[in-house]
Nucleic acid binder design. Structure first.
Lengths: 209, 209, 209, 209
DNA sequence: CATGAATGAGCCTTCATTCAT
DNA sequence: TATGAATGAAGGCTCATTCAT
């Protein structure tokens, strides 16, 4: 009896989890399309294929759904990046090259530019979001880049004079390309492969000893 | 009699213009604090020190106020940049250096980072705004940069191989620094002067023949 | 000196009176076009060629302007009708015929159908208006018609059996034609001359002994 | 299971339909009392015993509610009249008599005079309404009357010389009586039964050969 | 658990009225 | 006296949230 109950309940658990994800995904789409304020929970419900009230069985409020949406979509990217960084073997030049290429791959994935833009635009109204984003994404990324640069300096690949506290400079072109594609692709499309290679060459020239 | 009337009317004209600017400024503050949708005209009115209905004596709608806010705050920057670019004499290296320094000066001005972020976040929902911003700001800036690069190539200062269609790469660190200051300054402040100089050195190394 | 002052003041009086009429006329046009609630004093001012505030130098409120508009446009019609009725000599048949023809002439005048429709539609919200209209227009008209019918009965022109308390029956086709022209002329226009003659013939047949 | 669900849903359907009618009825009362513009949806909601927003679950806008109000209140009258007209057997005189009596019965029903007055007063601002009213009510009624008159002429009951294009003349007294009762009943009440009979006699005398 | 009908606070917008010039 | 800028109360409409089914 209990086993049956458990099986049923775990089935239910699975269904609940699946539905939860469906809502988060639907919310994600709406939030990146409309922004936080302009998103209607009605539309989220329609997109998720559920009733409007059901959302409140899974989330306390529109705001908490938003937080979950961000969280769920950023964690995989962060985890991937950490995993990659931990495993890579090679020269600093190779590592930096690979890292930048991976950034473009991430940014080319569906919805990544939108996600970044969404975070940028809502961060002011959600200080928690800015904290979270800085802690989980930005600072880790910076740390990684600093290590690479220092490694290159140690190995004689890179010049000593580059200030490691400004690693933003190294990846800024990639971030900007994401915003560009989101807003200006219709006006003037970017050839991302060539852009990426130009970025890499530029960075290596800027860093080389 | 007519002189009096004119004086009076010009007084009124002046007052109207002053009030118009007050509304635009108040709107600017609210829009960058709250975003377009979340901004209440009530709050704009309070901030401008006027009645709610008064806004409609000067603007047709919340949307048209928004457009005016963007316009009024972008034009000066654009005009300054154009004027500067038209008059400058010197080597390509000097010109590029000055141009980047000027960008940081602009971006350090109050509210400029907020303005950029605002435009970025609302552009998706206001295609007109994206058009406008691209046309009046982005494409002009690109054109200017292309000219500088070409000039440097012609004079032998810069290498030929840098792809002039990707001038975004050259100024991306400046844009990113603006967003950084807006969102992450509390977590990790940037020394803008040093950052600027690092950016310039980086760009010159990346471009040099 | 005083004579001059008087002349001036009477000049001013005239101007004031003229302006007052201009406002009433403008109000009339707007009221019959839009109805009371939907009429904007702004539009009235524009039509009268004056400033919005000026209206309040002549009228206490939108409502009192409305009352004046009705009053001013009904009095002439009433006075004309009274004058005509007092002077006419002839048989009852002739008198009734003339009276009906005059009604059509009135109703064909510009804005008369609109005025009637306006009164009809606003009377519920302006009980005073209904009182006024009944007292000054409707009851007098009824009285007039009763006299004609009685005169015709006395002279043997009309049958005795027609109930003189229902003189509405005699003029209803004229009233209806006014409303018809206002609302349905586009769908099915009325030849007013023929309609009028048909009405007269119908009434005379209905009344004849 | 499904049966239960169906029962429940049909219960809900019924409730929804009931509420829809409640809103229409409340709207009707407010519209005839205040006119379209002056009617507040707040008041409609209060009268219907619901919340303000609920109205928008059933109607797109104040205007579409207005249209439904008119439609719902006119169709029954129209359908009844058509049914009656299609089935009646008898002489033209009898038919016309019955038709007029039926009109008075309709007009004596609660709110009918108000409805007519409402349509009259709003038709100018709602051309669609005028179209609708003309098409569904006026022209059909006219057609019916024309047939009756022609039938009477054919049977020798009525004179040939009455112009069938002016059937308005035949029913005008009934329409006017409705407006009278609405506006002037307090000043001078009408004995509707006697008025109706006087109207019928008058019409028959006016038409008889 | 799921639903969607119901709610009402809240916002944009309008306009009669006031008042400084 | 005349103006029109300014006001703020009020109304149509939206939507996050609740709750009966």
């Amino acid at each position: 009896m209990e086993a049956v109950k458990e099986r049923i309940s775990s089935k239910r658990e699975l269904q609940k989890e699946a539905r939860r994800h469906a809502i988060i995904d639907a919310g994600f789409q709406e939030f990146i399309l409309q922004g936080f304020t302009a998103t209607k929970l009605d539309d989220v419900a329609v997109r998720a294929g559920i009733g409007k009230g059901t959302i409140y069985l899974y989330f306390d409020s529109k705001e908490s759904l938003f937080e979950e949406v961000i969280r769920k979509n950023l964690f995989p990217v962060r985890d991937e990046a950490e995993h990659f960084s931990a495993e890579f073997k090679g020269t600093a030049t190779e590592l930096l090259t690979m890292h930048i290429r991976r950034m473009y791959a991430s940014l080319n994935e569906d919805n990544m530019p939108q996600l970044v833009a969404l975070i940028m635009s809502e961060a002011t109204r959600f200080p928690t979001l800015a904290d979270f984003f800085f802690r989980e994404m930005v600072s880790r990324n910076q740390e990684m880049l600093r290590k690479v640069v220092k490694k290159g300096v140690a190995s004689g690949e890179f010049r000593e004079s580059f200030p490691v506290e400004f690693t933003q400079i190294l990846i800024a072109p990639a971030m900007i390309s994401a915003l560009w594609r989101l807003q200006f692709d219709a006006h003037s499309p970017l050839d991302m492969d060539k852009y990426c290679e130009a970025h890499i060459e530029f960075v290596l020239r800027g860093l080389k000893a």
